[in-house]
Lab assay of single mutants.
Amino acid sequence: MGFKLLSKLLVYLTASIMAIASPLAFSVDSSGEYPTVSEIPVGEVRLYQIADGVWSHIATQSFDGAVYPSNGLIVRDGDELLLIDTAWGAKNTAALLAEIEKQIGLPVTRAVSTHFHDDRVGGVDVLRAAGVATYASPSTRRLAEVEGNEIPTHSLEGLSSSGDAVRFGPVELFYPGAAHSTDNLIVYVPSASVLYGGCAIYELSRTSAGNVADADLAEWPTSIERIQQHYPEAQFVIPGHGLPGGLDLLKHTTNVVKAHTNRSVVE
């Protein structure tokens, strides 16, 4: 069995187990497998329904001669939608809004960016022009300005110390501490036991640490421990890039980060 097929099978099995364990909360999309990078042309966006009122959005972007996937989250909030992270750029984010209108038909009224990198804030200006209120932590807003990236308009308070959590509509926002970046936030959907790890969490097929220019490698494993301790009931975990899975993604990420750190020390 090929690795790609095995990865998709694991996603399907995880979703099936969740649907059985929580039949009222989960209505997993039966329309197909989780979209992969090879299936999404740059400039297009796919939506994948995880649970009743919960979707991931998947886009792709060219970077350094390669094409990478990027995940975000959409959560229903009454007759409105909360968006977590842009679709990595203005063109993708405009396509995301169009796809949401086509498939869901509810307005996106608020959006949260989970850290300051372009795959999370690139497209904020498109959201703002569409009347979406954009939010991020003060740290993310400051770092985005320093980096020359787009800056969300509103500040999220109460997320300055490791372990801080605040309720934001249908989700809980959690600051686990520094990891992929010093400002990275985690998003949890309690009604569906869905954990969105953003770039602080890796997919299972990833074996290298990737972009760690703004990471705190020493603190990252401790931050992941905080996530595990705060959300032990999480059933569906979405990484910032690639295929979702279960809580095993947290341990896998820790292993990859520690291996990278150990290699760096040896070198």
Rank of each mutant, 00 (worst) to 15 (best):
V11F: 11
Q49K: 12
E33F: 13
G245V: 01
R46E: 04
G122C: 03
A21I: 07
E44R: 10
L81F: 10
A259P: 04
R110P: 02
P244M: 06
P23R: 09
S31E: 08
S160F: 12
F26L: 09
P107L: 06
R206D: 04
V132T: 14
Y188E: 03
S139A: 09
F116M: 14
H260C: 10
F168D: 03
S160I: 05
H180N: 00
E267W: 13
A66H: 13
V45Y: 02
S38H: 06
S162Q: 07
V266F: 12
K102Q: 13
L97P: 02
K258H: 12
V171G: 04
R206N: 14
A90V: 07
G240I: 02
P170K: 07
V256R: 14
Y202D: 05
A200K: 00
Q49Y: 06
S27G: 09
A66N: 15
I104P: 06
A94K: 06
V171E: 00
R46H: 04
G105C: 05
T114D: 04
E225R: 11
A200I: 14
V45S: 12
H252R: 11
H115M: 00
L6T: 11
N211T: 07
D183C: 00
E39F: 03
L173P: 02
L73G: 08
T36N: 04
V45Q: 14
A19S: 10
G65N: 14
L217G: 07
E219T: 06
A213G: 09
Q49V: 07
I84G: 11
A144T: 10
K258D: 10
S139Q: 12
A144P: 09
F116Y: 15
R167T: 03
L173C: 06
A87P: 04
L96D: 01
I40D: 09
A144I: 15
D64E: 03
S16C: 05
W55K: 02
P244K: 09
G177P: 00
E267P: 14
I151Q: 02
I186G: 06
G246L: 06
V112S: 01
T86S: 12
P107C: 05
H230A: 12
F3K: 10
K102V: 04
E147H: 08
P23L: 13
M1W: 09
T60H: 05
I50Y: 03
I17H: 15
L204W: 10
H117K: 00
